[in-house]
């Protein structure tokens, strides 16, 4: 019983981290039809910024995290304007090459200034303390991650369903040309979606540093994981990413607890089978 509980808690927390980091990737891949291999780089940059602010400059962790997310969003805005705008027009292969180039530059930058060791984020001690939920004690970190995941899912749902921007975004995902011809400023929708995605990735990277440690090669190491979440969930589908993240998080954690060794094999076999049967992912549009 207790092991099932641990699996569920750890799996859900892990899934929430995956969700926060990959939801932006799912939106950009569904919206701009761009394979952005550099997406994990925003999580890395967020974590690296927190490291610099909190460990090296002594800024309190939560203020440092907030600042780091803002820095990454600003950086994403600049990058979108300068680089990505041109990359949208390339073919698939050009996109892969260009975004891998960007990943390499991000890794090299972090490596140059901070080295290639694991970066501590200087999270307060209270985060690792246990919280008594009445029937069970949990590390506070897990509780915060799970709560943050639900809050982000809920606010994304509100954003997509209840605001004008959400309507524009859904229209642009469905049919970019038709949306543009109806007077929607699609380049600006792209810009906003890209920045939100990058900011969420940074936030997820910071919160998830305990599970996916921040180091220079982070974007390459976890690229496959984020791509799997996006493709299993379905490109451009926020609920799909959410379901896929939770499912994969629990599956992966269960594999590690119950079948150490062969767990990973079953994990990837399950993904292969799922994608072979449903190439568009759980909640993606059939193409």
């Amino acid at each position: 019983m207790s092991i099932i509980f641990s699996i569920v808690v750890d799996g859900v927390a892990y899934g929430m981290i995956l969700f926060m980091i990959s939801v932006g990737l799912s939106i950009t891949m569904g919206l701009m039809r761009i394979i952005n291999l550099a997406h994990g780089g925003f999580a890395l940059l967020g974590g690296a910024a927190v490291h610099v602010l909190s460990v090296r400059l002594g800024v309190p962790f939560w203020i440092a995290s907030f600042t780091a997310v803002i820095i990454v969003i600003v950086l994403a805005l600049v990058l979108e304007r300068l680089l990505y705008r041109h990359i949208y027009g390339f073919g698939e292969l050009g996109q892969v090459l260009a975004t891998i180039g960007i990943v390499f530059l991000m890794i090299a930058t972090v490596n140059l200034f901070l080295g290639s060791t694991i970066l501590s984020l200087g999270a307060p001690q209270s985060l690792t303390a246990a919280v008594d939920l009445g029937f069970k004690t949990l590390p506070l970190h897990r509780v915060i991650v799970i709560l943050a995941g639900f809050i982000i899912m809920a606010s994304l749902w509100l954003l997509m369903e209840k605001t004008r921007f959400g309507i524009y975004l859904r229209a642009a995902v469905d049919n970019k040309v038709a949306a543009a011809s109806l007077g929607i400023n699609t380049p600006r929708v792209f810009l906003a979606a890209f920045a939100i995605g990058a900011g969420l990735a940074a936030f997820g990277g910071i919160l998830g540093a305990e599970l996916l440690p921040i180091e220079a090669y982070y974007p390459l190491r976890y690229m496959v994981l984020f791509l799997i979440v996006v493709s299993v969930g379905g490109l451009g589908s926020i609920p799909g990413s959410f379901a896929a993240s939770l499912g994969l998080g629990i599956l992966d954690t269960a594999g590690r607890y119950l079948l150490p060794g062969t767990g990973t094999i079953f994990f990837f076999l399950a993904i292969t089978a799922l994608l072979a049967l449903r190439p568009q992912g759980l909640m993606g549009k059939a193409q």
């Binding site: 496959v224 076999l269 993904i271 292969t272 994608l275």
Partner: peptide
């Protein structure tokens, strides 16, 4: 499969072999 699904299945196959 096609597109992203094809990419992901090919990655998954390699991962299964590596494990």
């Amino acid at each position: 499969a096609q597109g992203v699904a094809l990419l992901m299945i090919s990655i998954a196959v390699t991962m299964v072999l590596q494990e």
